[in-house]
């Protein structure tokens, strides 16, 4: 995943450059405003809002039309198959998270799902595990850090990646580093495969978010603030490792997007 590594480091560098734009701390004689300032934990809000605007422009020009075309062109079973394959390919990340959090019950499910889905499910196209009521779940290093007691740190919005926090961004980097696809071999075929996987992940994730993002744009008086709050709540929910009756899992991207993504039908 060289390209995603590139995005990650490029975006980090960009964020550092933009640190210049800092939010103004409320005066000390207004404790409620101060508390809110700390809860938002968004010291670089002015810069983040610029990055958010950049992302929105890119999204409306490129990502959203691509996701809509993807939904229009491919029938649901094909899209479901693609999502399943991408999810299956995330097994190493999820399993690593399960194990590092000492959650062996979930690790067993993750491994079982991988074996069954890869074989009977033909390379992960069919989610056979779900048919046996063994549902997938999301996991990543950001969640593992949280389970270890690491606070989320300041909020950050990255164009293309979406909302994140200091902790989740470091976790995202660790996920790339710990992904075997980052390291095994080299050559054009592998590069092409990695790019294709990244491209499909972006399209698949955006397609899953078509309605939630439409709803935010239509109903929110401040989409930036809505997304910031929703992202935090969604991450907190995922970190609890509660099984959702709807079998909600994060999309294949897995940086956490602040919205519940459910399994495709």
């Amino acid at each position: 995943m060289k390209f995603s590594a590139l995005i990650f480091f490029g975006a980090s560098a960009l964020a550092l450059v933009l640190l210049a734009g800092c939010a103004t701390r409320p005066p000390a004689d207004d404790p409620e405003a101060l508390q809110e300032f700390r809860e938002n934990n968004d010291p670089f809000e002015p810069s983040n809002r610029v990055l958010f605007a950049v992302h929105e422009a890119i999204d409306q020009a490129v990502l959203q039309p691509m996701a809509e075309a993807y939904r229009d062109v491919l029938p649901p079973p094909v899209r479901a198959g693609i999502r399943n394959v991408l999810g299956n390919l995330r097994t190493t990340t999820i399993l690593t998270g399960d194990l590092l959090q000492g959650n062996f019950d979930r690790a067993r499910k993750t491994l079982g799902r991988f074996i069954v889905n890869t074989t009977i499910g033909i390379g992960g196209i069919q989610d056979v595990g779900r048919a046996y009521d063994v549902h997938g779940h999301s996991e990543d290093m950001g969640q593992t850090f949280a389970a270890w007691g690491v606070g989320e740190g300041f909020y950050i919005f990255m164009p293309l990646l979406g909302p994140s926090t200091a902790r989740d961004l470091v976790g995202f980097g660790a996920d790339i580093v710990s992904n075997p696809f980052t390291w095994i071999g080299q050559g054009q075929i592998l590069d092409a495969w990695n790019y294709m996987r990244l491209g499909m992940t972006i399209v698949d994730t955006r397609e899953a978010l078509l309605e939630p993002i439409d709803a935010v744009r239509k109903t929110s008086l401040d989409p930036y603030a809505t997304l910031r709050s929703a992202y935090r709540q969604r991450r907190a929910f995922e970190i609890q490792n509660k099984d959702s009756p709807a079998g909600a899992v994060a999309p294949a991207g897995g940086v956490g997007f602040g919205q519940g993504i459910t399994e495709s039908r």
Binding site: S220, A230, Q233, R234, A248, T262
Partner: peptide, 21 residues
């Protein structure tokens, strides 16, 4: 609360941002 995201908390954040800005 949809999939862990509470409407009242999200809206509070939204309205507060509008006022502050």
């Amino acid at each position: 609360i949809a999939e862990g995201t509470s409407l009242r908390l999200t809206t509070r954040s939204e309205y507060s941002a509008v006022i502050q800005r």
